[in-house]
């Protein structure tokens, strides 16, 4: 345990520092004493068999669950640090600027694609509209902010090749488009960290390759850190800079994709050589 602690020393480009995170549901320990560091301009992959606690980890980071024990430190821009475990769910998106996508896509299905991206810029627009009061009277600064928001949405629509369906209800898009839209929506919040929960699930190989290049370009162009849960090994191994492996709520390995590929503990966890249930 103390070795794990020592390994976690915040460096200059540390984005998220997870320290001794534990999450209990009644008697079930979903995450058990997990520590790792995610860095800026890096894609940190999180893998592990089903039920390893990956999504629970995300829910702790994005404030949907309050961790039982542990500390989650986010090193924001300009030296601000946020203790995520102490923040309300929505403030993590608003203040700490951590964005996420969901394993089972959660779009605003009845609203148009463009509107989904406008909703993502809510806090900025809300401020520009003078908490609606100025906006009601068509204040110029609000109109400008609205136009900027639209431009940003258009930028992401082009990047995700959804520009042609911008006015259609989000729920009417095919599955792969919905996945990309969810990423575009998360990026419209101007995050410094993006958490992706199985973004390649249900995609065909071509779409999955597309996704890889999208994620890489997000990393390189915006300099943000990505946290990626994925089962599709071609995605994880192909684009991750660093991989954390969870099994039964514990971290069993950590390292570069090459290290992980050859790690006996990981192979055991996936293939179950020693006959664990």
């Amino acid at each position: 345990m103390s070795a794990a602690m020592a390994a976690v020393s915040p460096a200059a480009d540390t984005l998220l520092n997870v320290e001794r995170l534990t999450m209990r549901f009644g008697g079930l320990i979903a995450i058990n004493d997990v520590s790792f560091v995610a860095k800026r301009r890096q894609i940190t992959g999180i893998i592990g068999p089903n039920g390893a606690g990956k999504t629970t980890l995300f829910n702790c980071i994005t404030g949907f669950y309050k961790p039982t024990v542990g500390r989650l430190t986010l090193h924001g821009d300009a030296g601000h640090t946020y203790l995520l475990e102490q923040m309300d769910g929505f403030r993590i998106g608003q203040k700490a600027r951590v964005a996420r996508t969901f394993q089972n896509i959660r779009l605003f299905t009845g609203m148009s694609v463009l509107e989904n991206l406008m909703v993502a810029q809510h806090n900025k627009l809300m401020l520009a509209s003078g908490y609606t009061v100025l906006g009601l009277f068509g204040w110029p600064s609000f109109r400008r902010a609205e136009r900027d928001a639209r431009d940003k949405a258009v930028h992401w629509l082009e990047k995700t090749r959804l520009i042609g369906v911008a006015d259609q209800p989000a729920g009417s898009l095919p599955y792969g488009d919905q996945r990309r839209l969810e990423i575009a929506r998360a990026m419209c919040t101007d995050p410094i960290m993006l958490c992706l929960d199985e973004p390649a699930a249900g995609l065909n190989p071509r779409e999955s390759a597309d996704l890889n290049s999208l994620l890489l370009s997000i990393r390189d162009e915006f300099g943000i850190g990505l946290l990626l849960i994925e089962h599709d090994m071609s995605v994880v191994m192909g684009i991750s800079d660093h991989i954390v492996v969870l099994d039964y709520g514990r971290k069993i390995a950590e390292g570069t994709p090459l290290d992980i590929r050859n790690d006996p503990a990981v192979i055991r966890a996936y293939l179950g050589e020693d006959g664990q249930e």
Binding site: G63, G93, R106, L107, F108, G110, M118, M126, T132, G135
Partner: peptide
């Protein structure tokens, strides 16, 4: 057509997603 109005509709559709986007429900 204001941000608040869109947030209302978004809340109606999916409160969880709204929270993830930093909207105060």
């Amino acid at each position: 057509k204001m941000p608040i109005g869109r947030a209302w509709e978004a809340l109606r559709e999916d409160e969880t997603a709204c929270r993830a986007l930093g909207i105060n429900p």
